[in-house]
Amino acid sequence: MDNNAQDPMVPQLYEVTRTIRETHDSFSLHLKSKGDSDIPEFGPGQFNMLYAFGVGEVPISISGRAEKSGNLIHTIRNVGSVTSALNDLKKGHTLGLRGPFGTSWPIEACKKQDVVIIAGGIGLAPLRPAIYALLKQRDQFGEIAILYGVRQPKDLLFTKEFETWRGKYGIQVKVTVDSADREWKGNVGVVTTLIPRVSFDPTHTVAMICGPEIMMKFSILALKQSGMSEKNIFITMERNMKCAVGFCGHCQFGPAFICKDGPVFAYNKIKPFFETRDL
């Protein structure tokens, strides 16, 4: 059937070209298409459905493009049966991929503005392509601040890149952890405590937040207290997802389907639903 070529439920095959252990529970896979098709263009914040043979499929945000090969990078936390099967893949193995799906971070809207990026835990991965999109045309933006909170120092992702972001591009990168032993010389406390410590003009700032809902809730509150308007705050939502194309109904969040209307939302568009428990 010709139809199957475009059937959105049928994955394309990708080869693992590199595996990277990022932290004690997170890893990255570099992926190259095994078919004739080129690696799809994607927007920062978009995600793919990754299929581990015989186990299942999960939505994973694209965390970047490999520098030389342009291969797709996904950074994954090993928390369930599918992510565990993906964790077991080695260089040369095959997986299924459908995508990219969903909305992107508003890079255009950041032009001539300051940018505040707030990430919690694995939430830095979906923001990483946005960071690189900003770096690519650094002079288009004002101050850029990245505030990153994790539970413990061992959860920190992409730490090697922080120095380049700071040194070469003049970005304010602040890190905090919820708890740490004496070895840790950095900040301890929730990520919102970093907000007063970076410089940005709240009336001319776009904020992008990705992390647990509770963390996003308090980050929004703190940004609003600093003087930011809700329409300039963007967050990314996570829900159970089976199809990623609006058929399965699982990812509904009020009137939105996270898969196609999200995962990136302007906060003012979903505010009443974000504030309702168990929605």
């Binding site: 059937m1 015989g54 080695k90 095959t94 299924g96």
Partner: peptide, 19 residues
């Protein structure tokens, strides 16, 4: 049934359903 997959060493192939 959406599709079938057949393993082949470290790779596999996906066979879409005939409709």
């Amino acid at each position: 049934k959406l599709w079938t997959a057949e393993k082949n060493g470290s790779s596999f192939k996906i066979i879409p359903e005939e409709l």
